[in-house]
Every structure is written in C-alpha cells, then in structure tokens.
C-alpha cells in the first residue's frame, strides 16, 4: 500500500470476554490497520463499540484473544512478560478519566517520576529533575504542582500530568483513549493543542480515540470508524469528512453540533434504534439493523474492508459513493477470521 513501513500494525485483533457461563462477548472482532510514523490516526465510535478495548489490547493490557500487534517490526503479542515490560516504555497510553488514572495518595510529581523508575538506569535526583522538566513542557509549574495530590488539581491539570507521565519514557507511540471527553470545552482545547504540540516536538505517532468527530477531525491525519467491534471505514481525514462512504460514518458526522446561529441543528438523518448488544451481534453487516440502505445481502454476507479510492477503505456492500476505478480495487483487503 505504501512504501513507508508503519510503526504499528494491528492484524486481525480480536478480544473476547467471557461473561459468566458459556456466554462470550466479542468486544473487538478482527480489526486490522496500520499506523504510520509521525501520523495521528483518529478512532471514532459510540460507547460500547470496543474502541477502548482495542486500545487496551494494543497496549497488551490485557493481551488480545487473537491477532497480532506489531510495533516497529516486532510482534508484541508473543513476547514474554519480562521482555514486554522492557518494551513498554516505547508505547504509552493516556486514559479517559484524568483523575482516576493517577494514584490518589501519591503526589503527582512522584507519579510522573515513577514511570522512569521501572525503566531503570537513572538516579532518583535525575528522575526528579526530568519529571520537573516534563511538567514545564506540559504547561504545569513544578514549583506549584509537583507536590500536589490528584484531587487538588483540576481535570485538565490531571490530564497534563498523565501526558507528562506518558512522555517521560520517550515513547514512539502514544495511545490516547478519550483524553478529552470528560473535560470542559475550554479545557479540551488546551489539551488538544498540547497533544498536537508534543506530538510534533517528540516525533510521536498517535492513536487518538474519541467519540466526538469534531475533535478527531481537528487532530487526525487519518480517521478510522468503528462499530460494534469492527472497523467500518478508514480514510484520510479530509476524505472521510467530505465524502463518507459508510452510512454509519455519515450518520455520525450529521450528529455533530455546529455552533453558530445559522447552522442547521445536528441530528438530521439520525440513527434509528439502539446499538445492538455485542453479546448477540447481527449477522452479516453489524450495522444493518440501523442502516437505511440495508438489503438481504447485508444480512447474509459480512462486508469486508475494501478500498474504494486511494487510501479510502470501507466495509459496506453499498457504500454511499462508488468511486470509478478498476474493478480489482474491489477485492477484500484483509482476510479476517470468522467468529
């Protein structure tokens, strides 16, 4: 697809939970994508679509049930726990709830400093010095904030602490799991700007998960849309917003509020019905129960992710626009395990 070797390749990752007895939930089913160096890939979907589970599966917290996660050429799903721990400094994560992701009884400065402790090779004084530097980088005043505890800081400040902690180990990949969805709009802007800045300053690649398309559009180079454990569309940011191919993507875009007096109200062409239970997903295309274009074929055959334009992948039998092109582009791009 590209001559660039991706930093992260996710291949057929599946996460299955057992929920008592023999009932299983396929939270993530055969998701595959690549994340290139220096790129921000946005991942959107409603709550319960499995995007956080996917993020944790990539982090190996816990390991996925099936599939491979290849970071910089190395499959981290088969690593022993010791070598995995050693490699962890290269991929870090920022969690949704900024306050809950910090140890409540630790001083925040110590939380930042401690992430270097496991890497080893640095003296305590050196670690503290680095932690204070990093606090300055993320816009906190070490004099004022180093010795505070999480509950003494605002949500936005706690999220800055989390970012500092993640950056301490000098990662290549930063996975942000809804980092701004529990913050006020005004604080959210700060955090997004900060993430964009540290991404370019530190040459990071980023997987940015959110349910808010406007946020995702603001920060991403490419966007992947997830529904009920599967990817339904993956395309460059500009393409997916100007010409969404999956009916679900279009519904999501329509739901975004547009501020301003003369803008149409969000929610026209809304999704009907509820998200089906992942314990009992619909046959064929998982979106068919809410899709205005669903036909018999959607019930029978599960659509595979295929390319409809350069870099634009969609998993739909009847995408919203058919791009004129040679027929061979309509082949399934990746084999996916049946579940």
């Amino acid at each position: 697809m590209s001559e660039r070797e991706p930093l992260l390749r996710v291949e057929g990752v599946t996460v299955v939970y057992s929920v008592g007895g023999r009932r299983n939930v396929h939270a993530v089913s055969g998701v595959s994508f690549a994340l290139f160096r220096g790129e921000t890939l946005g991942l959107v979907g409603e709550s319960g679509c499995g995007k956080s589970t996917l993020a944790r599966a990539i982090m190996q917290l816990p390991r996925p049930t099936a599939g491979r996660v290849i970071l910089d050429g190395e499959d981290i799903t088969v690593l022993g726990s010791r070598s995995l721990r050693a490699l962890r400094s290269r991929f870090q994560m920022i969690f949704q709830d900024p306050i809950a992701s910090l140890n409540p009884i630790r001083r925040v400065g110590e939380s930042i400093e401690a992430s270097l402790r496991t890497k080893g090779g640095k003296s305590a004084a050196e670690r503290v010095r680095r932690a204070r530097e990093m606090m300055t980088t993320v816009g906190l005043d070490p004099e004022q904030h180093y010795r505070r505890r999480p509950f003494q800081l605002s949500g936005g400040q706690c999220q800055r602490v989390s970012i500092a902690r993640a950056l301490m180990t000098e990662p290549q990949l930063l996975i942000c799991d809804e980092p701004v969805s529990s913050l006020d709009v005004s604080v959210q802007a700060h955090i997004i700007n900060l993430l964009r800045k540290v991404k370019s300053d530190y040459g990071l690649s980023m997987l940015f998960i959110a349910h808010d398309l406007a946020v995702v559009k603001n920060i991403s180079d490419r966007v992947a849309v997830m529904y009920l454990g599967r990817l339904c569309e993956l395309a460059p940011c500009a393409d997916i917003f100007s010409s969404p191919a999956h009916p679900y993507t279009r519904a999501l875009i329509n739901a975004v509020p547009r501020p301003g007096p003369c803008q149409p109200l969000a929610g026209t062409g809304m999704l009907s019905g509820e998200l089906p239970s992942p314990m009992d997903p619909p046959s064929g295309c998982r979106f068919r129960t809410r899709c205005p274009r669903a036909e018999t074929r959607c019930v029978m055959v599960q659509p595979e992710l295929r390319q409809i334009a350069p870099g634009h992948l969609v998993a739909c039998h009847f995408p919203l626009r058919e791009v004129a092109g040679p027929d061979e582009d309509h082949r399934p791009l990746m084999d996916r395990p049946d579940n």
Binding site: I192, R196, V215, K217
Partner: peptide, 16 residues
C-alpha cells in the same frame, strides 16, 4: 475553543 467539524484538520484551537 470549540473544535468544528467544518474546519480543516489541525487548526489550532483557541484556548483561554
């Protein structure tokens, strides 16, 4: 401060 879906990607958000 509001990210807008009609804006081009990577617009710096106005932050107070």
């Amino acid at each position: 401060a509001i990210p807008r879906i009609d804006d081009p990607p990577h617009r710096e958000l106005g932050a107070i």
